[in-house]
Write a protein that binds this DNA or RNA. Sequence first.
DNA 1: GACATATAGTCCTATAGAGAACCAGATTGC
DNA 2: GCAATCTGGTTCTCTATAGGACTATATGTC
Lengths: 245, 245
Amino acid sequence: MSMTALAGDERLPLYQRLAEVLRRDVMEGVRRPGDRMPSETALSAEYGLAPGTVRQALSALVDDGLLERFHGRGTFVRRPSFDRSLFRFFRFRDASGEWRIPESRILKRSVEPAPSHIARQLRIKDGEPAISMSRLRLLNEAPVLAEEIWLPKARFGAFLDLSESAIGPLLYPVYDAQCGQLVARAEETLTAEPASRETARLLRIDTGAPVIVIDRLAKGFDDTPLEWRRSKGRADQFHYHTEIR
Amino acid sequence: MSMTALAGDERLPLYQRLAEVLRRDVMEGVRRPGDRMPSETALSAEYGLAPGTVRQALSALVDDGLLERFHGRGTFVRRPSFDRSLFRFFRFRDASGEWRIPESRILKRSVEPAPSHIARQLRIKDGEPAISMSRLRLLNEAPVLAEEIWLPKARFGAFLDLSESAIGPLLYPVYDAQCGQLVARAEETLTAEPASRETARLLRIDTGAPVIVIDRLAKGFDDTPLEWRRSKGRADQFHYHTEIR
DNA sequence: GACATATAGTCCTATAGAGAACCAGATTGC
DNA sequence: GCAATCTGGTTCTCTATAGGACTATATGTC
């Protein structure tokens, strides 16, 4: 029954201060994705707050996507999932109409000095060593995405030792397991451009045909940029849908 | 002090039932955008609920974008604004770098039987009379968007009587004032395609150059489709940015 | 008239408590 | 062994109350 004092700016409401304390726990890795949070009653005892106040703090973090609540089971640190990525608006279905993860063929993997525009994104020094990778993503032998990926070598050195067969189509689990780098969120930018001769060859379309370009900067819980990625796919396979009001 | 009984499924929580009642008021036009809702204490007296319960109901509607709260002033029916539209990702700035609403030049306005794909979207009968319009949107004499617009004639007959000068660049206020049709929300779909010869001529780009296509279906509070619109702009002026997690 | 002050109305924060709904695992009964 | 039941723990709903914080308007003061 040791009551912990609540840190933070005294002028801020209690529920916000509690939320910040809990958020910090997650950002610093004290609590990891999948962990169960203390129960609402436990937290209210711990910090000497009314249950309603604790609940308000948790609600804020749930709205933020940091936590996940399950009636009767508990409140958990959310495992980041990228279901909301722009990629899901590519119509990638196999013959049976099912959604599938495209397989991956690595075309190139090497260490190079980071070009300045990459370095700026990854927040490393210009020319610092980085891992550069080209991948082709395929569905039933048909190419659907051409990808260019950059990683800071300082964090991802272990990635170089892996054989291609050990990598598979999904990279983030590999980053976590092999390099201890956990992706928490990402920023994505969508543009369209005419296919270069090289891109056209990879995607087997005409040079100059429109391609959708998605740039993604993936970040850790502490906001460190971890991976920069540029993916190109056929524009005629893409349509993004949203509701506004 | 007449206490109103709360309609709706008895198994649902009270705050949800109250939220649905209030939502219906807005959808049926009992309360219009800009109106102030009764205060939380007034509602709690009216329905015989604790203030906390009422607040929970209002919060749900605020999250939903239907209401808007102002500390110390009140809770209001939100005026739909389309700041979140995909259009804001076009880099349309004038010479001084300021964001401006592009002016509008109407190229064509006529009544035609609705083609089937339009009729389906507007939920009217195939071939039913509809208003068809082509517009060019310009910034400093430079064309930036080519638009094709369809309206169901049954609702928008009054729109035909207006002179072009009376219309201006923003249509939704005109729909409201002249035709009594209030747009509450919209669905937008983004694709990219090579410019047709016609589109290329309007936008003054090369035929086959990539253009961003945004289809929008605007709906009323009661979910009736009101306007279908297809807008095309230069792909090299567009980039959509979002965060995911 | 200009500016400070009071006041009423609003949403916002926080407390305290009770019971319902739900879930997982242990126990019981057969 | 298997199924039903119980039990403890969790989140969820709802009540009731009190005071703080903010806004707009009215009032007073100079």
